[in-house]
């Protein structure tokens, strides 16, 4: 793998709430190289979005971030806010999940894209607006010069997502973090948006961190995958490691829950029983243990000892955090 542009080591995010300290992210590592795509997969509440917000330094003030976030070797954690501000939106940009709420309803889309540009370039409003139109055109908004003067509510969901992507790309960022960029969209529009991201990546060599729970999308575009569960890494490896050699029962559960076209349909889709633990509620043992079908085979260790990431067979750095050493056969 080429030298990573973004490296995250032992990232921990703790929220100081009225109910006490809540660890939302409990030590994760990942890295992404220019032009490559890392997918972070997990259920809601697994810490995916919090991790990306921590990388951007845009968490609320009651969050404490520990660990290392290296952008091209430069440590971002603990950097003063006005230094971070120069990096946000410029070197690292975010594409949000819900484009309607992510855009400000009171300003035209052209103004909003131009604002992102003006925040990092000393140019006139006019020049910035021209640049915004250019970007809106690039992301496939028809008649961009005219549409730039429209307000977010005047766009369809897919077009709005394109606006958000244009806003993220306007400064040619080196890292793009896309937080479930296609969740709110129709399937055909989803494919268009993913294609757009892939084109951009190819053209500019942007590193993409794709946060998703859609394994179909992940299989299509990711190079590497990090599976998160309850704020921790359950498994990580290349996309082929995950899809052909998944070693963590949770990864297997996610794969099993995906409808497939190449096997005869079952009367019901498979689900993982139970629901994810609330952050911080599991003190000892494996966080997935209460929902795991393999606990009986391993025994006490799952309840008493927290599994660490250990190497698994695969391409390069395939790792899983499970006491069940070898690749489990599917239990159903």
């Amino acid at each position: 793998m080429a030298d990573p542009i973004l490296e995250v080591h032992d990232l921990r995010v703790t929220f100081d709430t009225e109910g006490g300290l809540v660890p939302a992210v409990d030590g994760i590592d990942f890295a992404v190289a220019p032009g490559k795509t890392l997918a972070i997969v997990g259920e809601s509440g697994s810490g995916k979005s919090v991790s990306s917000a921590a990388v951007m330094g845009i968490l609320p003030s009651n969050a404490e971030v520990k660990g290392e976030v290296l952008l091209d070797g430069r440590e971002l954690v603990g950097l003063p806010d006005d230094e971070l501000r120069k990096i946000r939106g410029n070197d690292i940009a975010l594409v949000f999940q819900d484009a309607l709420s992510a855009l400000n309803p009171y300003y035209t889309v052209g103004w909003q894209v131009a604002e992102a540009y003006r925040l990092h370039h000393a140019v006139s409003k006019k020049a910035a607006f021209k640049r915004a139109v250019e970007l809106l055109d690039k992301v496939g908004i028809p008649d961009a010069a005219r549409r730039a003067k429209s307000y977010p509510h005047e766009f369809s969901g897919g077009m709005r997502q394109r606006v958000v992507i244009a806003m993220a790309l306007v400064n040619n960022p080196r890292v793009l973090i896309a937080d479930e960029p296609t969740t709110a969209l129709d399937v055909t529009v989803q494919a268009q948006i993913m294609q757009l991201l892939a084109d951009v990546q190819e053209e500019f060599g942007t590193a993409l961190v794709l946060i998703s729970h859609d394994l179909g999308v992940v299989a299509e575009v990711a190079d590497d995958v990090l599976v998160m569960y309850a704020g921790r890494a359950a498994e990580r490896g290349t996309v082929r490691d995950l899809f052909y050699r998944a070693a963590h029962p949770y990864s297997l559960g996610l794969l099993g829950a995906m409808p497939r076209i190449d096997v005869p349909p079952k009367p019901r889709l498979t689900t993982i029983p139970g629901s994810p633990p609330s952050p911080g509620s599991i003190k000892t043992g494996c966080p997935f243990q209460p929902r795991c079908a393999y606990t009986e085979r391993v025994g006490e260790r799952c309840i008493t000892e927290r599994p660490e990431l250990t190497p698994r067979p695969g391409e390069g750095d395939h790792e899983a955090a499970c006491h069940l050493g070898r690749r489990p056969e599917v239990v159903s």
Binding site: I58, R88, A102, A116
Partner: peptide, 26 residues
């Protein structure tokens, strides 16, 4: 608390701009 305030921060806007241009406007 709205999402577009987070967007403004993620764009690299300073606190003053976030509060006045994006927050107070609404």
């Amino acid at each position: 608390n709205l999402d577009h305030i987070t967007t403004a921060r993620a764009k690299g806007a300073g606190e003053r701009r976030v509060v006045v241009t994006h927050g107070l406007r609404g």
